[in-house]
Amino acid sequence: MPQRDAPTARQRRLGWELRKLRERAGMSATEAGELLGIGQSRVSNTEVGRIGISAERVRVFALNYGCDDERLVEALAAMETGRTRHWWEEYRGRLPAGLLDLAELEHYATAIRTAQLTHLPGLLQTVDYARLTFRQCIPQLPPPEIEYRISHRIKRQDVIYRARPIPYTAIIHEAALRMQFGGPEVTREQLRHIIDMSERDGVAVLVIPFSAGIFPGSGQTIVFAEGPLPELDTVQLDAEHGFVFVHTEVALAKYRTVLDRMEAMALKPEPSRDFIRSIMKTL
């Protein structure tokens, strides 16, 4: 297979997991290449996602590395999408790669949990709300890119609209609900949309009111995408310099705990809807 110029986050993750298997087996890339009948450079390029690998080849790598966890091996084999082209590829070269990686992450997730403190979740945003948030980017975005970003964000929402939607839990702090982006009318319509979405199958909106006090993870936005196995989960964090994807075992355990504690502090779905309605009445 030809080398990729810019492997996606999913392709890099598959390579990283293969490297973990090799290192657990105590092999160098050179030793692995000799065992597999390929050069060391090919092993290394596979491990950083620059060279694709078939599902069958993934199984051969795992076998040679002594991995007998069939569920993990099959989950890794399923991560190689080959030349499959998804909708987000039409934005490549027009939007930052991190946005495409986020769409890919959500598309393949088996469940998603997100915690939002000052902005409302992208998968629950209206077009008007999304446009206002993109207008605040620094440096300022040109109008065509804003429209591309809006289109991309709305298409991402397919994961909760499709025939078999992904279970989606949004933990939203009261501060985000009270931010009047665009004034009362835009805010009221956005809150009404969140209530409507919260009544869809598989969608849970949980509100943390100001009265809940301090809680873990109160300084960042978190998207936790579950994989087919817990060890293949991924966390995406927002940062001013771009998107950060985290998947080490220690970090995953930490963010599971953070989200569990935040969810335990939040109102349940029906009280959350009532809480949002009460905010709407004040607008």
Rank of each mutant, 00 (worst) to 15 (best):
H173E: 14
P144N: 07
L141M: 08
P184G: 09
L117R: 05
A163K: 13
I166S: 09
P165S: 02
T118L: 14
P165R: 14
I150A: 10
L117T: 13
A170I: 09
Y161D: 15
L123I: 05
P165V: 00
I154P: 10
T118P: 00
A170K: 07
H152M: 09
L117Y: 00
R162L: 02
Y161S: 09
L120A: 00
A176E: 06
T133P: 10
R149A: 08
V127F: 10
Y148Q: 15
R131G: 02
T169F: 02
T133W: 12
M179E: 14
P165Y: 10
L117H: 13
K155T: 01
G183L: 06
P184I: 08
I146T: 10
I160S: 03
I146A: 08
I150R: 06
K155R: 07
T118I: 09
R192M: 03
L141H: 06
P167T: 02
G182P: 12
Y161P: 03
A130I: 02
L123A: 12
I150M: 15
Y129P: 01
G122S: 08
I166D: 01
R192D: 05
V127P: 00
Y148F: 15
P167I: 01
P167L: 00
L177Q: 05
I150W: 13
A176S: 09
D128P: 07
E147F: 09
F134G: 05
Y168T: 06
F134C: 10
A163D: 15
Q180K: 06
H173R: 12
C137W: 11
I172P: 05
L117W: 02
D158I: 06
P139A: 08
P143Y: 02
I160A: 01
Q140G: 14
A175Y: 01
P139D: 09
T169G: 06
A175S: 08
R178E: 01
E174S: 07
Y168D: 04
P142H: 04
Q116Y: 08
Q136L: 13
A130H: 11
A176P: 01
A170N: 07
I166G: 00
I171L: 03
Q190G: 01
